[in-house]
Design a protein around this nucleic acid. Structure first.
Lengths: 228, 228
DNA sequence: TCAATAGTGTCTCTAAGACACTATGAA
DNA sequence: TTCATAGTGTCTTAGAGACACTATTGA
């Protein structure tokens, strides 16, 4: 049995979700040189656990250490790989933009839209895997602080709201959003105020190791098109 | 690599959650004749998908076809099986009591408490797997109609409330519970009223194939000890 | 001065929680 | 008649959604 690990590693750039793709080696038996989700085999001799294997693959093949990794689902069947029965453990990984750029040369960040709208075709069932991981992210964004892992350690609330809106695909109410996030008690006011185009914004900080906090209501988002 | 599927199959009897255990063969290399979670290998020649393999294993080894099966997590590491690296895809399965009894002779239903309180020791990491599956069930019970799959197709609302309370481990408010469940529109009033000790209860019916409906608030349960 | 941005005040609405109440029928 | 059980009425509460408002500062 072919047994692999795949990762959907996401970041936010220019108000868009981007996924990291990895170029399959030119000597691959199938889909040679195609751009795919980064993945690899478990090395039973050196990896103690699946989690360890996932970290190793991301560090070695891609060169990144994401702030957050979560197992999404395991897909196994006899048609996803032309070579025969194949199983993959799919992971969702999030990284903040500021540390996302130093990757290996056989990788590139692409807007997820390009894959979703079939402008960029991925091998195997990787498009479906991407969709599954994105669905997990947007579902959790409705009731948790998970998208915080896409933000910098020091951030402005409007920035974080924008991240949520990108992940959810719809606008949010500024008032409700602020109350919600601040009530989770993961952000501390640094006291710094940053001046931009308008009124100065408060800079908050979150602990890199802070847990994902859960709310007990889902956010629906705004019906109207106003986010402020 | 040893790659298996395991299932936590649950039912409710006598106001208790029960899990189905399966006796490992006497000739097993490890944990021979021990009671364990039912599981088995994927047969790449005959199983088309992981889901198919899961159903086959439950039908062949146990003799049951659960109403609901969901993948929970995949656990892989080098210490869960004394023989070496081992991966298992854990599933949560629910079955209604009335069809749960005709099982193979090398199986038995036991109260989950016996495992959780270490009165009954399971081999490998099966106790941990059981806890993981139970946590998934109780988490989902807080915001979905999932526990309906533990109930009969025709049921009284107080019965269903009791099932939720067993799964959640705490009492619920009758008023809020009724509104919630009925608002999900999965139950239809059969018009039948059943008389028991007290006032006659309305019999509702759910479609065997009805989807798990999600609420957008979590149920907290009652602080006080009243459920009616 | 004006436009863009951050942030607050406050009203409504919905569903959960709290609790008392009525209705029914077996023991 | 009593009491266990099913089911309803209605108030409170918390938080999301709606929307208007003030405050600050760069262009």
């Amino acid at each position: 049995m072919i047994s692999t690990i795949d990762a959907v590693l996401l970041r936010i750039l220019d108000n868009q979700l981007q996924v990291l793709l990895w170029q399959r080696p030119a000597e691959s038996e199938v889909f040679a040189s195609h751009w795919a989700l980064p993945g690899g085999w478990v090395y039973e001799d050196t990896d103690q656990t699946l989690e360890e294997a996932t970290c190793r693959i991301l560090e070695n093949k891609v060169g990144l250490t994401p702030d957050y990794i979560e197992q999404v689902v395991t897909v196994g069947n006899n048609h996803r790989d032309p070579r025969g029965w194949s199983t993959t453990v799919l992971h969702l990984a999030l990284i903040r933009t500021s540390i996302s750029s130093i990757t290996h040369s056989d990788t590139q960040w692409v807007n997820v839209e390009n894959v979703l709208e079939r402008r960029l075709l991925l091998p195997f069932d990787h498009a479906l895997l991407l969709e599954t991981a994105l669905e997990r992210l947007s579902t959790k964004a409705r009731y948790s602080t998970l998208p915080l892992y896409l933000a910098e350690h020091e951030l402005k609330l409007p920035e974080l709201q924008r991240i949520y809106e990108i992940v959810l695909g719809n606008p949010l109410h500024k008032r409700a959003f602020r109350e919600r996030i601040l009530s989770a008690n993961v952000l501390t006011d640094t006291g710094v105020r940053i001046q931009g185009r308008g009124s100065p914004a408060t800079i908050y900080r979150y602990a890199p190791s802070c847990p994902v906090m859960l709310f007990d209501r889902m956010m629906q988002g705004a019906q109207t098109d106003l986010s402020d």
